[in-house]
Amino acid sequence: MVRSVLRMFVWVSLVILVSACTKPNTPQEVAAAFWQAMAENDASDVVELSTLDNDSAFDSYERDWADVVPSYGRVVIDGTEASIVTRLPAESAGGNERREVMTYLVEQQGQWLVDYERTGEAIMNPSPFSGLMGQLSEISDRIAANFSSSSSDMEQRLNDMARELEAYSNDVARRADEAIKEYGQVLQDYMEELEESVNRALEENQQAPEGDRKNLEQAAKDLESGSEQLAEPSLEALASATRTLTETGQRLAEVGSDSFERNRDEWAATLQEIRERSEEFFQDLRDSMRAENESE
């Protein structure tokens, strides 16, 4: 009997220990658990994971979240407050289109909780910049994943962003334009550097196979044309440069002669640096525009 009671005590203790270990603690864990509770329409769990006072106040943000699986982006923790970029399916869109909102959290008595009211405000009354922010976020993610495989889609997104920015005449649009011009100059320098490297390789390897030389000659011409377009940087020019760099990367990768082995490594390193700088640019642009918009 004593042994049976002891086994029961150990079992209960283990259950309590496991429950304690699996309780969400970080802002990321709490946000994920919160949105899972929203998807399950579980008012009690939502109350436990958020600043909501009681079950009766749960309104599900006036939307059915069944089967909704959000994805998450950048996390910012500032003292007892945190925010997490949260990508949710667009309510009126089909397919894989998603909209970006913020999940806000506060730390109370050592426990992170979703700020239910503030998060709801971001969802139910989205900023007019939400579409633009979503595009910036997606472009940044696509660059981080693979620059070349999504170049045509990125070009379209950049052109869409250019048209959307035209609708704004405030400081947000002005600062975005300044950032675009600054990065356009950086991208132009990269393209000129690549063009010079390709032309130098052609000069040093005049006996290389004709097919490789034609590929490189076309790459040099494309880079020259692309850098000229960036003389007056704009999102449209960046879109064109994106396509040019993608096509150039494919051409350079097709060069098979051993004569260009050292050059291929150099070109690959430059293209990787461009990818990293592009990802950083779009991330910084998104953060800057969000901060400016929230301050208005």
Rank of each mutant, 00 (worst) to 15 (best):
V255W: 03
G73W: 03
W65A: 11
V2I: 13
D42K: 06
D222M: 06
I77R: 00
E81A: 05
E232S: 14
A145Y: 15
A66I: 07
A237Q: 13
R243N: 06
L136W: 14
V5M: 07
K181T: 08
L252F: 11
M8D: 13
Q207W: 08
T80H: 04
Q135T: 11
A43E: 10
A179F: 02
A20C: 04
E40H: 15
N263E: 01
N54K: 15
N96M: 12
E164T: 11
T80V: 02
D64F: 09
R157E: 02
K181A: 11
A167K: 14
E280K: 15
V106R: 15
R175E: 10
L105M: 07
A220M: 11
G95W: 00
E204H: 07
W11S: 05
N263H: 02
M133V: 00
V198S: 04
W267D: 00
A32L: 10
E261G: 02
Q250S: 12
Q207T: 09
S259L: 12
A237S: 13
P209F: 03
V198I: 15
A32V: 11
E296D: 07
T242D: 05
R87F: 11
L285H: 01
A39R: 01
V172Q: 10
F58E: 03
D59C: 10
L158V: 12
R264G: 12
S225Y: 11
R163K: 14
E294R: 14
A269M: 08
E29H: 10
A269V: 02
E232R: 09
G73R: 02
M133W: 06
I143G: 01
V186R: 01
A268C: 01
S295P: 04
N205Q: 00
S240E: 10
E196A: 14
A219T: 03
D153A: 14
L216F: 01
D78I: 02
E182N: 12
A82C: 10
A241D: 04
E294V: 06
A122K: 07
E261V: 05
R63E: 03
D284P: 02
N293M: 08
S225A: 15
N205R: 03
V198K: 05
L6S: 07
A219I: 00
G73M: 06
V2K: 13
S137F: 07
S4V: 14
K23R: 14
Q185M: 07
W65E: 05
R63S: 05
L49Q: 00
S151G: 00
A145I: 12
Y61M: 03
S152V: 09
E192T: 13
G73D: 04
L113N: 01
E204V: 13
R174D: 06
P233Y: 01
E280A: 14
D141S: 08
M124Y: 01
M38F: 11
V186G: 00
Q229E: 04
L245T: 10
E192R: 15
V15H: 11
P126A: 09
S240A: 13
I139M: 09
G249F: 00
E192P: 01
Q206S: 06
N125G: 01
E224A: 11
E97H: 03
F58P: 04
S151A: 14
S60W: 02
S140V: 03
S149N: 13
E236P: 02
S234T: 15
